[in-house]
Design a protein around this nucleic acid. Structure first.
Lengths: 244, 244
DNA sequence: ATGCTGGGCTGATCGAGAGCAGCCTTCGGG
DNA sequence: CCCGAAGGCTGCTCTCGATCAGCCCAGCAT
C-alpha cells in the first residue's frame, strides 16, 4: 500500500489545503475499496442507475456522452486524484459513460462514505466540494473552447490544461507529460474529426510549439503556446476563501 | 409579497419533492434580501471577487464568458427559480459574468444563509444540491450540443430545453413560451454567428416546426422538433433517489 | 422631421474543417 | 509466418457556417 501522502488525491488537495493527520486518515479510509478496470470497457454506462462514485488513483478515464447517431463527445478527462461519477450518486441515473483509457485503479465511494466524510472531516469535505466546483469550472471552460475557439487554440488549450492538472499530482511539468490518449480521443474531446486532429497536431509540431507523439506530450515553447491558446489557469489554481 | 407557493423556486422544487411547511418558510426567508438589476448591466463581472449568489425570481439572466478577442460564449441561461453564482461563493473569484436580460429581480443569498439552510432544513438542502447537479447536467448537455450537433439541431434543442425548464415554473408549455432573448443571445449561446442564427430560425419556421418571433417561441410540431433535436429530457426530469 | 440605435433580415463570397479514400506501421494472436 | 485491427498520416473534394455588406423597420431622443 502506498503511503497516504502519495495517494494522488492527497497530493492534489495538499496543493491547496494543509491536510491534518485526521484528514489524511479519512482519505486513506476512502481508498479501502479498491477496484481495477480493464481498458476500453465502460465502468458506467449512460442511463445506468444506482451507481457508485470513484476516486481515480492510477490511469486515466474519459467521461463522454454518445449521441443516437453514434458520434460521441468527451466531456472531461479524469487523471489520478480526480473524482468521477459524483453526480450519478445524487441523480438517479448516470447521464454519461466512463471509459478507462488503459488499465486503471480506482477506489469506490458509496453515498455512506460521503456522509462519513462530511461528519468527521468537515475541512476535507469543503476541500472535496471545492474540487467538484473546479471540475465544473473546467467543463465550462471546455464549453467555451469548443464554442468559440478554432481547432488550433482548442488543441493547445486542451494540452495545456491537462499539463497543469497533471503537474498538481506530480505527473507532469512545463516540459511535458505522458499521455495515453489517442488522436481519436482528442477528436472526440474537441469536437473535431480525427483527420483534422492529425493535421492540427502536425501544425503545432511544425511551428515548434508542442509535440504529441508515442504517448508523450512535449512542450517546446510553453509561453508561446499559452499565448496561442489564450490559456489562463486562474480557474484551475484558485482556492476558495473558505479553505484558507 | 407573493405567496410562498408561488415563488418560482418553490414551484420548481415542488415538482420533485413534497416541501414541508418548514421548508417553505426557509425558502421565504431566503428571499428576504430582494434586489433589482437593470437590463444589460452585468450583476457580476468575471474575475470579480467575494460575490454573493442569487435566486432569480423575475426575469431572465445569462451567464457567459468573454474571450480576449471579444467573442463571448453564453454558458447557461437562468430563468425564474434558478440559482446563479453559487459557484462563485465557493471559489474566490467568479469565473464568469452575469447579465440580466431585461429588468430582473433576484434574492441575494449569502454564505451564511446557505449554512442556515443546511442546518435547519436538510431535506431542502438536498433539493438544492439536486438543483445544482441538474444545472451541471445542463451545461454538459450544452457542451455536447455545441460539439457534436449541427446548427439546426442545436437551435431546436436549445428552444426545447428552455421550454421544459419554463414549464416547471408554469411559464411555458408544449405550445410555446415568452422569450426575451435576441438572436444575438442565441448566437452567443450556440456558438454561431447572428447571421446564421437568423437563417436557421427561418429554416425551422419554414418547415413548420417552431417560430421564434417578437419575444415569443411557438412550437408548431413539438414531436417532430424533439426528433430533429434528439432531445431527451431525462437529464431534466429525473429526481435523485435520496429525495424520494 | 430627422437622425440614430437595436434588432431583424438577406445575398454573395470565402474558408475551416468534415468526409472519403487510401496507405503505412506496429503489434498481438492464430 | 501471416493476417487483421488499431493507430497514425495524407490528399482531394465539398459543405456548413463565418464574414462582409447592406437594407428594413420601430422606437426614441433631439
Amino acid at each position: 500500500m502506498t503511503k497516504v501522502e502519495n495517494i494522488p488525491l492527497s497530493r492534489k488537495l495538499s496543493a491547496f489545503v494543509a491536510l491534518s493527520k485526521a484528514d489524511l486518515a479519512v482519505i486513506e479510509r476512502l481508498h479501502r475499496r479498491r477496484r481495477s478496470f480493464a481498458s476500453g470497457r465502460d465502468m458506467v454506462h449512460q442511463g445506468q442507475a444506482g451507481q457508485a462514485a470513484y476516486i481515480l488513483s492510477v490511469g486515466w478515464v474519459c467521461s463522454y456522452k454518445i449521441q443516437p447517431d453514434g458520434t460521441r463527445q468527451i466531456v472531461d478527462i479524469q487523471v489520478p486524484g480526480d473524482f468521477l461519477g459524483l453526480r450519478s450518486v445524487l441523480l438517479r441515473t448516470s447521464d454519461h459513460s466512463f471509459e478507462p483509457i488503459g488499465e486503471i485503479q480506482a477506489a469506490e465511494v458509496l453515498p455512506g462514505d460521503l456522509l462519513e466524510v462530511f461528519a468527521q472531516a468537515p475541512r476535507l469535505a469543503l476541500a472535496i466540494l471545492w474540487a467538484v466546483s473546479r471540475d465544473e469550472a473546467m467543463v465550462v471552460e471546455h464549453l467555451v473552447c469548443i464554442g468559440r475557439r478554432d481547432a488550433e487554440a482548442r488543441m493547445a488549450h486542451f494540452l495545456l490544461e491537462l499539463g497543469s492538472r497533471l503537474a498538481l499530482v506530480k505527473m507532469g511539468s512545463k516540459a511535458g507529460y505522458d499521455c495515453p490518449l489517442t488522436q481519436y480521443h482528442l477528436a472526440d474531446a474537441l469536437g473535431l474529426s480525427a483527420v483534422h486532429v492529425n493535421r492540427v497536431l502536425r501544425q503545432l509540431r511544425d511551428s515548434g510549439l508542442v509535440t504529441f507523439r508515442d504517448g508523450h506530450v512535449t512542450f517546446h515553447d510553453y509561453n508561446r503556446l499559452v499565448e496561442l491558446a489564450e490559456f489562463d489557469p486562474a480557474y484551475l489554481d484558485q482556492i476558495g476563501p473558505l479553505l484558507k
